[in-house]
Design a protein around this nucleic acid. Structure first.
Length: 434
RNA sequence: UCCGCGAUAGCUCAACGGUGGAGCAUCCGGCUGUUAACCGGAGGGUUGUAGGUUCGAAUCCUACUCGCGGAGCCA
């Protein structure tokens, strides 16, 4: 077989020429005079048509016997325009050569239950829906890196194994660490980001983070990716502008480069096109009033639940920024508001359509005395934070940052029901394999 | 951890307390350029596990296991 290997996505550049495509059988529809093979190679699918008269080496006769769903093979043929559809190209197939045979592939071209599909996740990745979602994820990751890299940020990888809890609140995964006692899987890289911004001005950390909370909802994973920019000499106002600009850039990239994927996912693109600066901004106190008017009263000082977030953000067609939360519901390192000591300079960005909190951030407390008081008040181990306090001892400056959950962002972009679809191999409270 | 729902063929589901079915998948045959193709035939089950009620349980009751949705926690 003469081999002129071409990817499916480039077939349109080879019309009229004989090429070979390597891939897997997505679907086979044999008939008496023509046998149709839908071949998938990761870059797309192409219909290969075997004719009784034109095929070589008995490929027409071998078709049904050898080509089973998800068998891998090489197909050689001439690239032609589809007789019925414009802008669709197919392969007038002459021959095929088997690589690996597949027997009784468990995922059929029909609807399946979620649990079944995720127990087959290693194979399910081949299906068009996960494929589309993970392509969007890839584009979002690239947009994140491109945005920060082109805005003067330095990537600063934070450690995954840490000695202490980042915020001192959540439940963490613990493991023995040689003679040094317990180590924990990081729940945030933020404190390290703060060290980094004092060295580089603007940094971002981007990597996996871990939460051992027994959260079994459509918004939670035990292992997820978070990107956390941290900027020296930036206040809450600047933090909000950064978050806003950052989100708009990601949405733009997805809209520009992921049209086929969004269409495959039947995403309502107009919802994403509405995402433009500026985002509406309200304070926590305003939000409490809005909730009272909407018949979902919440006492001032209590944190919002997911239904509250959805209710408050329901009036907007773009992300909503809620600021200045009560001190008690937020982490110890957030800076207190000089105008209202009851609240801290925090900000949460709530995505529309019920996707909830995609960003949480704040201006950080730069005053060491206040910080020490907060650590004592939260009963956190002071010695664990000595290095962190050093950042305030040696040239402390106002600084701010936020964390964005990658999977929540991708879920919003794709309009998926469940966050587990947005990561190749989701780790949830009851799933550790595949 | 709490609340609600569920578990029946490989997969998706149906079946009034009275001999468990269909579609898809598999195998066999047919076939119109088919595209989740279509048509005919065949094989396929200890109804999640353990107990209980009953002449009789997939069906009612109890416990357990697993799954789904929601809450809390958060990104």
């Amino acid at each position: 077989m003469s081999e002129s290997r071409v990817e499916v996505r480039s077939l349109k550049d080879h019309v009229g020429r004989e090429v070979t495509v390597a891939g897997w059988c997505y679907n086979a529809r044999p008939q008496k005079r023509f046998k149709f093979l839908e071949l998938r190679d990761g870059t797309g699918t192409v219909q290969c048509v075997f004719g009784a008269e034109t095929s070589l080496n008995n490929s027409f006769e071998r078709f049904e016997e050898e080509i089973t769903q998800e068998s891998s093979l090489y197909v050689t043929g001439i690239v032609t325009k589809h007789p019925k559809h414009d802008d669709v190209f197919e392969l007038d197939a002459r021959d095929f050569r088997m690589e690996g045979r597949s027997e009784n592939y468990p995922i059929q071209p029909k609807e399946h239950g979620v649990d079944f599909l995720f127990s087959q996740r290693h194979l399910y990745l081949r299906s068009s829906r996960p494929h589309a979602i993970l392509r969007v994820r890839h584009r979002v990751v690239k947009a994140i890196r491109d945005y920060f890299d082109s805005h003067g940020f330095t990537l600063l990888d934070s450690p995954i194994l840490t000695a202490n809890a980042g915020e001192g609140t959540s439940t963490l995964f613990a493991t023995e660490y040689f003679d040094l006692g317990q180590a924990y899987l990081a729940q945030t890289g933020q404190l390290y980001g703060e060290a980094g911004c004092m060295a580089f001005g603007k940094v971002y950390t981007f990597g996996p983070t871990f939460r051992a909370e027994k959260s079994a909802t459509r918004r939670h994973l035990t292992e997820f990716w978070m990107v956390e920019p941290e900027v020296a000499f930036m206040d809450l106002e600047g933090n909000m502008s950064l978050a806003e600009d950052f989100i708009c850039y990601i949405v733009e990239c997805v809209l520009t480069d992921c049209r086929p994927e969004l269409e495959r996912l039947e995403r309502d693109i107009s919802k994403l096109e509405a995402v433009k600066k500026p985002f509406p901004r309200i304070t926590y106190s305003d939000a409490v009033e809005v909730l009272a008017q909407k018949g979902q009263p919440i006492p001032w000082g209590e944190d919002f639940g997911a239904p509250h977030e959805t209710a408050v953000s329901a009036d907007y067609d773009r992300p909503l920024i809620i600021t200045k939360y009560p001190e008690a519901v937020k982490a110890f390192y957030m800076k207190r508001d000089a105008d209202d000591p009851r609240v801290v300079l925090a900000m949460d960005v709530i995505a529309p359509e019920g996707y909830g909190e995609i960003i949480g951030g704040s201006q950080r407390e730069e005053n060491i005395d206040v910080l020490v008081h907060r650590i004592e008040h939260e009963k956190l181990p002071m010695e664990a934070f000595e290095w962190y306090l050093d950042l305030r001892r040696y040239g402390s400056v106002p600084h701010s940052g936020f964390g964005m959950g990658l999977e929540r962002m991708v879920a919003w972009m794709c309009g998926t029901q469940h966050i587990r679809e947005t990561i190749p191999f989701p780790r949830t409270i009851d799933r550790l394999r595949p």
